[in-house]
Simulated scan of single mutants.
Amino acid sequence: MIAWMACMTGFILDLIFGDPVWLYHPVRLIGRLITRLEQLSRKVCRDRDRRLLTAGVLMWVAVCVVSAAVPWVLLYGAQSIHPAVRYVLESFWCYQLLAARSLGRESRNVYRELKEGSLAGARKAVSMIVGRDTAALDEAGVIKAAVETVAENTSDGVTAPLFYMMLGGAPLGFFYKAVNTMDSMIGYKDERYLCLGRCAAKMDDVMNYIPARLSALLMTAAAFLLGMDGRGAWKIYRRDRRKHASPNAAQTEAVCAGALQIRLAGDAWYFGRRYAKEYIGDDIRPVEAEDIVRAGKLMYGTALLALLLFGAWKAIAIWML
Rank of each mutant, 00 (worst) to 15 (best):
L29Y: 09
P171K: 01
W234Y: 05
L217K: 01
W313G: 09
I2M: 14
W4M: 15
K235M: 07
G56A: 11
L52A: 06
T54I: 14
L214R: 00
S41K: 05
Y95L: 12
L75R: 01
C7P: 04
D14Y: 07
A289I: 08
L264T: 02
G104T: 09
M5G: 09
R294L: 15
W93S: 09
L217Y: 03
L114E: 13
P71Q: 13
S155M: 13
K297A: 08
W93I: 08
S155V: 15
S215Q: 03
D14M: 11
R239Q: 07
E288G: 12
E253S: 06
W60T: 14
T181E: 14
I292R: 02
M320E: 06
E139F: 04
D240L: 12
F271N: 10
A249G: 04
W4T: 15
V158L: 08
I2G: 04
V65Q: 01
K189I: 06
R28A: 10
V126C: 10
F174Q: 06
A3K: 01
D47A: 11
R123N: 07
T35N: 13
Y24M: 13
P286M: 07
Y76D: 15
T302A: 02
V293A: 10
D156N: 14
I16K: 02
L13F: 12
P161N: 12
H25W: 03
A212H: 03
K124D: 14
L309R: 00
V88R: 05
R51M: 12
N109P: 11
L89E: 04
L33D: 06
V206Q: 09
L15S: 01
A221E: 13
V70L: 15
G117S: 08
A254F: 02
M320T: 03
F271P: 02
G141Y: 04
P71G: 09
L321R: 02
L114A: 05
D204P: 08
R241P: 08
N248A: 06
Y87K: 00
R51K: 06
V66C: 07
L309Q: 00
Y209P: 02
C94N: 10
E139R: 11
Q261K: 13
G272A: 03
P247K: 09
G173H: 06
D205C: 08
G10A: 14
A265N: 15
R48P: 01
M219G: 05
L162R: 07
V85R: 02
A223Y: 00
L309V: 14
E191C: 03
G157N: 11
F224K: 00
C45Q: 08
C7K: 00
Y76N: 08
S118V: 09
M128S: 13
D291M: 06
G31D: 12
K144A: 07
K43N: 07
Y209W: 13
M203Y: 08
S102M: 13
F310T: 00
A170V: 14
A68S: 14
I34K: 03
R112N: 13
L214Y: 04
E139W: 02
A200G: 04
V126F: 07
L13E: 05
D19R: 07
A160C: 11
D183N: 12
Y24I: 12
R28Y: 04
W22N: 08
L13T: 02
I81E: 09
V57I: 13
H244L: 05
A3P: 00
S155T: 11
Y24D: 11
V126D: 12
G230L: 10
W313H: 01
